[in-house]
Lab assay of single mutants.
Amino acid sequence: EAHFQVQLEQLRSMGFLNREANLQALIATGGDVDAAVEKLRQS
């Protein structure tokens, strides 16, 4: 989780407030914030 701290903060600042969902999306996308946003929008 600490590995994705910067990305988690970016997602939070973009309005994605579900930390667990954000973390799962980042893990699934290897930390790619843009891909994580797409994944979160689809769910």
Rank of each mutant, 00 (worst) to 15 (best):
H3R: 12
E38W: 03
K39N: 00
Q7N: 13
V37S: 11
E38V: 10
A2Y: 14
F16G: 01
E38H: 15
L26R: 00
L8F: 10
N22I: 01
M14Y: 11
Q42G: 13
G31V: 01
H3P: 05
D34H: 09
A21Q: 14
Q5I: 09
E20Y: 02
A35M: 13
A25Q: 09
L8S: 09
S43Q: 15
L17D: 11
M14D: 05
H3M: 12
S13W: 01
F4V: 03
V33G: 03
A21V: 11
R12I: 11
Q7M: 06
S13I: 04
E9G: 10
L26Y: 00
L26E: 00
A25M: 14
D32I: 14
G15L: 03
F16A: 03
N22D: 01
R12P: 02
A2P: 03
T29I: 02
H3V: 09
Q42W: 08
V33S: 05
S13M: 11
T29A: 13
V6N: 10
N18S: 09
F16M: 14
I27A: 09
G30Y: 06
S43E: 10
N22G: 08
R41A: 12
A25R: 03
A28T: 08
L11M: 12
K39Q: 10
A35C: 08
A35Y: 11
G30E: 13
L23Q: 12
G31L: 01
D34M: 07
Q24I: 06
Q24S: 08
L8G: 05
A21K: 15
F16T: 01
A28Y: 05
E38P: 10
R41E: 13
E1L: 04
G30I: 03
L26I: 14
R41W: 03
R12E: 11
G15R: 06
N18C: 11
E38M: 13
Q5D: 10
S13E: 12
L23C: 14
E1K: 12
L23G: 04
F16Q: 07
A25F: 03
V33L: 10
E20C: 04
T29C: 14
L8W: 01
A35V: 08
Q5T: 14
A36M: 00
V6L: 05
K39E: 12
A25E: 13
D34G: 08
L11G: 00
L17R: 07
L26M: 09
N22P: 00
N22Y: 00
H3C: 09
R41M: 04
L17S: 13
M14V: 05
E20F: 03
R19H: 11
